[in-house]
Simulated scan of single mutants.
Amino acid sequence: MTTHEFFNSLWKDYIQITPQAEAVRQLFMGKGEEVINDHVAFRTFSESPLNLDKLQAVVESLGYKASEQYRFEQKKLLAKSYRHTEDEDAPKLFISELQVHELSQPVQKILRNVIGQIPADIELDPSIFWRGRLWEMPSFAEYETLRNESEYAAWLTTIGIRVNHFTVSINKLKRYDDIEQVNALLKQSGFALNSVGGEVKGSPDLLLEQSSTLADKITLTFSDGKVASIPSCFYEFAKRYPSADGRIFQGFIEGNADKIFESTNAR
C-alpha cells in the first residue's frame, strides 16, 4: 500500500464520523486554498496485541521511522512521532498509548476485558487503522467509569482504532498563513474551537502553534441498550516555525499535545 492510498483510506473512514472535517476542507478550498495534511494521530492500549510496538511495525512497513518519544504523566500516556524516511512531504504520524497498568483497578478491569477480546494473532496491516472497535461495546455505566478517570480511555473503548484527527498544515496555506486568521475563519463559519489553555496552543518561540475544533458527536448504542451521543474526532491546525539552523521544526510539544487531547472530552 502506498502512503497516498493509506491516507485516502484514513480520510474516508475519518469523515464518516467527523463530517465537520470535510466541511472545513471545503471551506478552505472555497477560499482558493489547497489543504495539505501536517500529521495524523492514533490512540491505542498498552498490554495489548495493538500496543505501540505492534503498531510501529505497521507504520514502518509504510516507510516511516520513529522520530521522538513523549510522556504525558497526567493522562498516563506514552507516545511516539514518526516521519517518512523517503518522502519529506508525507504527513507525520503520532501514536499515543494508554498505560493501562497506571490506572485504577476498576478501570483496569474494564480495559483488560476489552483487550482480552482482541485476538492475540490479529492480522496487522495498514487497515488496522480503520477497522474501528475490535471488541464489544461497553455498557454505559462502564463508559462513565472510564470517562470519570480518563476521557482518553472512554474515547478509545467506544470509537476503537481509528484516526483521532487530521491536521491542516497552515504553512502550506497561501492566504490564511496565520493561526489567528485560521481560527477567526473557523469561528465565523460556526465551528467551535478547543479553548483549553487558550485557542492557540504553543507559540513561535516554541516553534509550533496549534489549534483544533471540538470533536464531532456520534450516537452509539451501548451494550446495556443505552443510546447516547459521545465525542468522535476533531480537526487540527498547525503552524511550524524554523529553528536556529533555519529548518522548519518537525517535532511536537508535549504541553501543546496535552491540551489538544482534550478536544475529544465530553462536554
Rank of each mutant, 00 (worst) to 15 (best):
192 A>E: 15
153 A>T: 04
174 K>R: 03
179 I>S: 00
13 D>Y: 10
3 T>Y: 14
221 T>L: 07
114 V>C: 11
246 G>H: 07
93 L>P: 10
26 Q>A: 10
90 A>W: 13
142 E>Q: 14
101 H>L: 12
45 F>R: 04
145 T>Q: 15
52 L>Q: 08
123 E>N: 00
92 K>C: 09
41 A>K: 12
148 N>F: 13
242 P>G: 05
89 D>R: 02
136 E>K: 11
189 S>G: 06
100 V>F: 07
212 S>C: 01
99 Q>K: 04
19 P>E: 14
200 V>I: 15
122 I>V: 13
191 F>E: 08
33 E>G: 00
28 F>Y: 14
213 T>R: 11
180 E>K: 11
267 R>V: 04
138 P>Y: 12
3 T>F: 14
245 D>Y: 10
184 A>Y: 03
115 I>P: 06
224 D>Q: 06
140 F>P: 11
240 R>E: 06
242 P>S: 01
100 V>M: 04
118 I>M: 01
147 R>N: 15
113 N>G: 09
215 A>M: 09
263 S>K: 08
59 V>R: 08
25 R>N: 10
43 R>L: 04
43 R>P: 02
3 T>P: 10
189 S>K: 13
54 K>Y: 08
47 E>H: 14
166 F>I: 09
245 D>F: 10
90 A>S: 13
196 V>Q: 11
38 D>N: 05
38 D>R: 07
217 K>F: 05
111 L>V: 03
166 F>T: 04
80 K>Y: 05
256 N>Y: 02
194 N>T: 09
266 A>S: 05
258 D>F: 03
262 E>I: 00
203 S>G: 07
256 N>H: 06
232 S>F: 10
139 S>F: 13
165 H>K: 10
43 R>G: 00
56 Q>P: 02
138 P>S: 03
223 S>P: 07
184 A>P: 07
195 S>G: 02
176 Y>V: 00
216 D>M: 08
226 K>Q: 12
163 V>A: 14
227 V>S: 01
57 A>F: 12
101 H>C: 06
227 V>E: 09
76 K>N: 14
7 F>A: 06
131 R>C: 01
124 L>A: 06
30 G>Y: 11
236 E>T: 02
57 A>C: 08
